[in-house]
Design a protein around this nucleic acid. Structure first.
Lengths: 246, 246
DNA sequence: GAAATAGTGTCTATCAGACATTATGGC
DNA sequence: GCCATAATGTCTGATAGACACTATTTC
């Protein structure tokens, strides 16, 4: 913290934050997992007005007394719904307007999280929390507020990031095989990939390390197990502008 | 707007948004331009507590009565400081914590804007608003609050987006030459680029159209003038994962 | 051995980077 | 002509995409 002048200390002592009209501020989460050959997003059924009974992305209002940062609010909400801290959490975007919630001028900062389906135990009544499969860029049910738009943005970001980063590993358990990883890419990008090229790319990125054992599938040759090397840098760019440098 | 049940209407009638404790919510701007062979960011000197007298990114609190969206608040603030609506405005990120402002738990959504230096007339006292040159990932003066961190994020995003998008055209006037565009890239990325490769890339992207006339420089052969074609898609990706598709 | 899947090898068209060459202006 | 800068041409090493081939398991 920076030092403050006497003058500034006096100003702060007389400052009353409550006197200004402020928007309501919440955090919402787009939590993704892959299971049963589909990309899924976590939805909760709203138990209160407004939009009671409708499915929505999980979220909650910032509690200035409990949450020290926006991200810690996101983590708190996430733990509440899934029982885990996610391996990957990233801020997506903030949506705010006077119209998106009938109660008030609201803003919501949306995070998107990736997790392996086997790590999650959904908290609470199963009729109120569920994984919903993504078709195209949304789900089949109607969502509350502007959550359909938010979800579409989140799916777009996920697809886009798959193109140039390694985040897909966070959708798999600790140990996984390359065919499994490739499958995740194919499921999310909705396109079949060439095995050889895929492996070459993953190899060049140098993000995975072999594990001694092997996984045996039902049929065919067993596949090598790998583990994600936790790297500082997460991106690998195939070709980019700065490589024009001479 | 969705239709509401009688029940929900009653709920809303009894809802008092003011009863909940909320964070303060503001919008800040990282406004960039290139002039005199440098990347510059717009700073304002704070005229009020806290951090009075210190330079900061321009911004202001959301006014729920005037601003219908966060972006319209950003545009209003921008017009106030620069007198123009920028050719490029993009949401960067939202920063929120209990510590970043001594007054209150605050959140700020930061936008970043690009504009041509000749289009701007700084509003207000010149001692209170100025372009500050970027050195590395920040400016030489000490900034208020967490604005140094925010600025570093904005500069990083700008550099990163230059690698795979066309946004640099928004830092130039309506009409410009390819050597001028290349110079912008070199100034921001801080690396010399090969002329031939640069032109090939720009050509492939098919974003520019020639203008009949020519620009005459002080010395040497005059350069062809171009204008940016306003495209729907803004990105051109050199090589990406989905091209593994067969 | 057949089936199935994992994993490797190789060929080729493409293309980024490097650099040489030509073009067009002022003096 | 000379200088300076714009613009184009060309060569080459690297590599993505395609696909054939080998390897290892179960039955």
């Amino acid at each position: 913290m920076q030092s403050r002048s006497i003058d500034e200390q006096e100003f702060l002592a007389g400052y009353d934050a409550a006197q200004y009209r402020k928007p309501s501020f919440s955090v919402d989460l787009a939590i993704f997992t892959v299971c049963e050959d589909r990309l899924n997003v976590l939805l909760v059924k709203r138990s209160e007005h407004p939009a009671m009974g409708r499915w929505a992305l999980p979220g909650g209002f910032i509690d200035p007394l409990r949450d020290s940062t926006i991200e810690s609010c996101a983590l708190r909400t996430l733990l509440l719904k899934t029982g885990v801290s996610p391996p990957y959490l990233e801020q997506l975007k903030t949506y705010g307007s006077k119209d998106r919630d009938p109660r008030d001028w609201t803003a919501t900062t949306v995070y998107f999280a990736l997790m392996a389906s086997d790590q999650v135990t959904l908290q609470g009544n199963q009729k109120e929390v569920r994984w919903a499969p993504i078709h195209g860029d949304s789900v089949d049910v109607k969502l509350a507020f502007d959550h359909r738009l938010i979800l579409a943005d989140a799916v777009e970001r996920l697809r886009s990031k798959l193109e140039y980063t390694h985040i897909a590993v966070h959708l798999l358990p600790e140990e996984f095989t390359l065919p499994e990883l490739q499958k995740v890419y194919e499921i999310i990008l909705q396109v079949p990939l060439d095995k050889s090229s895929f492996r070459r790319r993953v190899g060049q990125a140098d993000m995975l390390e072999e594990i001694g054992g092997k996984l045996r599938d039902g049929v065919g040759r067993p596949a090598q197990l790998y583990r994600f090397k936790h790297y500082e840098k997460q991106t690998f760019f195939p070709r980019s502008m700065s490589r024009y440098a001479r």
